[in-house]
């Protein structure tokens, strides 16, 4: 795997992810070699599929089907709350980061929750502006279109869904 990705690429992406995590109040796994290996996996997936799918999940190769598992995934916050780490453990909670909580395998919550957007119901309240929700961090805003990037977790606008309208 390492032959495909340069150290510079890994370092650059690490800095980008670290800065977004710091500004959003997220904590990266302090085990550096572990974290860098995950970041390498993200770069491999970016090259292979065109998007940074979770290295610990099998991507379909179709971006629209995999939006929920592009890192940071839609399940990160719930898994950090419940298990102390996201599915791949790139992101952890404070207790894990400080060595006070041991990491355990995080069960996959994706399949059961797999979204079928056609079946989803959006609350209708005849609002002046639709309410958009970031599927990654839950940030909510009322405006005609979602922001280009989430001001909290920095994911692009394609990760927003209509929450109310």
């Amino acid at each position: 795997m390492s032959s495909e990705v340069s150290e510079k690429e890994i370092e650059d992406l690490y800095k980008k992810i670290k800065s977004a995590a710091d500004s959003g109040g997220y904590i990266l796994n302090p085990d550096n070699s572990f974290t860098l290996a995950l970041i390498e996996g993200l770069i491999v997936n970016e090259k292979r599929y065109g998007y940074q799918a979770c290295p610990c999940r099998l991507a379909s190769g179709t971006k629209n089907e995999d939006l929920d598992i592009i890192c940071p995934c839609d399940y990160r916050d719930q898994d950090i709350n419940e298990f102390g780490a996201c599915y791949c453990a790139l992101y952890v909670n404070k207790a894990v980061a400080e060595g006070k909580q041991k990491l355990k395998p995080v069960p996959e919550r994706r399949s059961a929750e797999r979204k079928d957007s056609s079946a989803e119901t959006v609350s209708t309240a005849n609002l002046k502006y639709p309410v958009w929700r970031c599927t990654v961090c839950g940030y909510i805003c009322a405006r005609t279109n979602p922001p280009e990037i989430c001001p909290i977790c920095k994911v692009p606008k394609e990760r927003f869904e209509i929450f109310m309208k």
């Binding site: 795997m1 290996a37 996996g41 997936n45 290295p55 610990c56 791949c88 395998p105």
Partner: peptide, 9 residues
């Protein structure tokens, strides 16, 4: 497993 997955490794 997956070649990119650290837990598989």
């Amino acid at each position: 497993g997956l070649s990119t997955c650290i837990w598989c490794k």
